[in-house]
Amino acid sequence: MIGNDRLAVRKTYKLYVNGAFPRSESGRTYEVTDAKGHFLANAAWASRKDARDAVVAARGAFAKWSGATAYNRGQVLYRVAEVMEGRHAQFCEEVAAGEGLSSSKARAAVDAAIDRWVWYAGWTDKLGAVLGGSNPVAGPYFDFSLPEPTGVVAVLAPQQSSLLGLVSVFAPVLATGNTAVVVSSKERPLPAVTLGEVLATSDVPGGVVNLLTGDAEELGPWLAEHADVDAIDLTGAPAGRAMEFEREAAGTIKRVVRAPAGGEPDWAADPGITRMTPFLETKTVWHPMGL
C-alpha cells in the first residue's frame, strides 16, 4: 500500500431472515467471484434449516402484511425504490462485477430494477378493481369477488439476472400482499444481500421478505415440499430439476410458476400483471339483499 490509501472495510455478506442478518445456521459459506473468476466475497450458504426458519418468519409476517391497506403497501414498496436509489452506485458495481456487464449496461439494469419497484408500488391499490368486482348474479344477492394474497411464496430467483431479475420475481409477490422466501442466484448473490440491507432500512416489516443466498438446487426440494409454503416460483430452478420440484409442490397443491421456456426472459420488458396473478386467490362473497 502506498501513501495514504485507505484500506477498505469489507462487508460480511449474510442472510436476511425475519428482519435480521444471521449467518447460516450451518456455519457454511461459499466463495463468490466476479464474472472473471476473481474473489468477491464469502457468501452465507443457506441450509434447509435456514429455509425452514425463513418460512416461519414469512408465515409470521403474513397476517400483518396482507392485512395492511393497499395504500400502505404501495408506499412501502415505493420507499424501497427511494432507498435503492441512494445505493445506486453500489448496486451498479455489484451487478457489473457479478454479471460481467459494462458499467452502462449495469446502470441500465439497476435503473430498471428501481423502476420496477415503482411499477409494483403503483399496482397495490389497483388490483382489487382490475381483478375483482361485483358479479351480477341472477337473484337478490350482492356478490363480489376480490383478489387476495395466496400466502407464503417461495421464489427461486433467476440465476443470471441478479438484481433486475430478482426484483422482477419477488416485488410482485410483495405487491400482492404475500410474504416471500427468496433464494438468490447462486453464483451472483451479492446484489440480493445488498437488497436485503435496503429492505431492512425501508419500511418493509421484518419477515415479509427473507433472502437466502445459496443453492436453489439444494433448497428447492425443501421449499417445494414444505407444507406451509403456498406457492412456488421455479424461475431459478436448475434445468433438469424444475419438473421434480413441480411434482413435489403438487403434494400440497401449491400454486406453481414454471421456469420460463427457453431460458430467462428479457427482464427489462414490460412486466404486465402475469407475475402477480399466480399469487392471488379470488374470494367471492355472497350476501342477500333484503329489507
Partner: peptide
C-alpha cells in the same frame, strides 16, 4: 376460502367465480 356465503349457503351463478 374461495367462496364465502354470508347469510346464505350453496348459491351458484355463472357470473360468480368459484
Amino acid at each position: 376460502a374461495g367462496v364465502v356465503w354470508a347469510n346464505t349457503f350453496n348459491k351458484f351463478d355463472p357470473t360468480s367465480p368459484f
